[in-house]
């Protein structure tokens, strides 16, 4: 089995699905001849041609709007937005059009499309190459939002997303792109949308995270484990629809919850995770749920390690939660 990084795994998933289903097309800025700014689509143009791998003008609203038309017709477009920081010119198309198309048309039309976009910081990219805008899209009914943390899940989730009949925002943690290698099967497999995964078992504190911060959560869990705090770490993998059952089951066991995400704290998705636990596991809680997140500031260039909820910020939160 090949050891692949996330870029290779996503590339492999696209290659596989485009070979299997001729309805799948890729479009975006420089996704064709250049192979994408992160080279995720490298080789697809040569293999599938300009009619299925389309270099578009730099106009995000046009990229998504045109992809919506393709989906209305019956294709399975996979548009790429080069950085999620640049997704906002397409916000209207995503939230007003793609997300609402099935509902407002009474099921006459649907928008099966996967919007791929790199997210997150830690690559010295500054404020417009580092953001994590997931909450803005989770808040929009009609969208599914996915954020894999590793190459295996990235391939399986992407295949599931392309085959899904609804629009999926596929957020790729760019910090993980080439930082992690693991076994990724060549064959066809799906990681189901809507299923979280327990990546570390424990009975002391539940940590919920996703994307690049899963690794920080695991590092912090190891650190506090030396002090006798045994953490369970849940990688959400899919942010919406949320796998509440896996979270609640864990919190009923541990009685303690820490949510870790890169996006700013206020109205971040962590707040929703906490509230779900309050609704379904309140009497099991031994300590107030805690959020370790990005600050309510724009994403910084210089102080990004102070902004990000890295292990050095997570570990103290775990200890105070465990000893509350």
């Amino acid at each position: 089995m090949a050891q692949l990084n996330m870029v290779q795994a996503i590339n492999g998933a696209l290659t596989h699905e485009m070979g299997r289903d001729d309805r799948v097309v890729v479009l975006g800025e420089d996704v064709g001849k250049v192979g994408g700014v992160f080279r995720v689509t490298e080789g697809l143009y040569d293999k599938f041609g300009e009619d299925r791998v389309i270099d578009t003008p730099l106009a995000e609203g046009g990229i998504i709007g045109t992809a919506i038309g393709m989906a209305l017709y019956g294709l399975r477009p996979v548009p790429e937005i080069q950085f999620s920081d640049f997704i906002f010119p397409a916000f209207d198309q995503i939230v007003s059009e793609a997300a609402k198309m099935r509902w407002r048309s009474g099921g006459e039309y649907s928008c099966p499309m996967v919007i791929r976009t790199p997210v997150g910081g830690g690559i010295r990219g500054g404020l417009y190459h580092s953001q994590s805008p997931e909450s803005l899209f989770i808040h929009t009914s009609g969208l599914k939002v996915v954020c894999p943390s590793n190459p295996y899940d990235a391939k399986g989730l992407l295949l599931a997303a392309i085959r899904d009949d609804d629009p999926v925002l596929f957020m790729e943690p760019k910090r993980v792109y080439r930082a992690v290698k693991m076994d990724v099967p060549e064959e066809d497999y799906e990681v189901p949308i809507g299923e979280a995964k327990v990546v570390r078992e424990g009975d002391g504190v539940t940590i919920v995270s996703w994307g690049a911060m899963v690794y920080e959560a695991l590092t912090a869990a190891e650190q506090v484990g030396q002090d006798g705090v045994d953490c369970e770490v849940i990688d959400l993998r899919t942010l919406w629809p949320l796998d509440v059952d896996t979270i609640v089951r864990s919190v009923k066991k541990t009685g303690r919850l820490v949510v870790v995400h890169e996006a700013p704290k206020t109205c971040g998705f962590g707040a929703e995770v906490v509230q779900r636990v309050m609704e379904q596991a309140f009497l099991h809680l031994e300590a107030p749920p805690v959020r370790v997140t990005g600050w309510d500031t724009p994403f910084p260039y210089t102080l990004e390690n102070e902004y990000l909820p890295l292990a050095h910020r997570i570990a103290p939160a775990l200890m105070s939660t465990a000893t509350f």
Binding site: G62, I68, G69, G74, E97, S105
Partner: peptide, 23 residues
């Protein structure tokens, strides 16, 4: 197609359908 109140958002959809159909 489904009409939408936001101005001109439907226009790129027409391009997408046309492109897909031609393909």
């Amino acid at each position: 197609a489904s009409a939408s109140a936001p101005a001109a958002t439907h226009l790129p959809h027409a391009v997408g359908v046309a492109w897909a159909a031609r393909g």
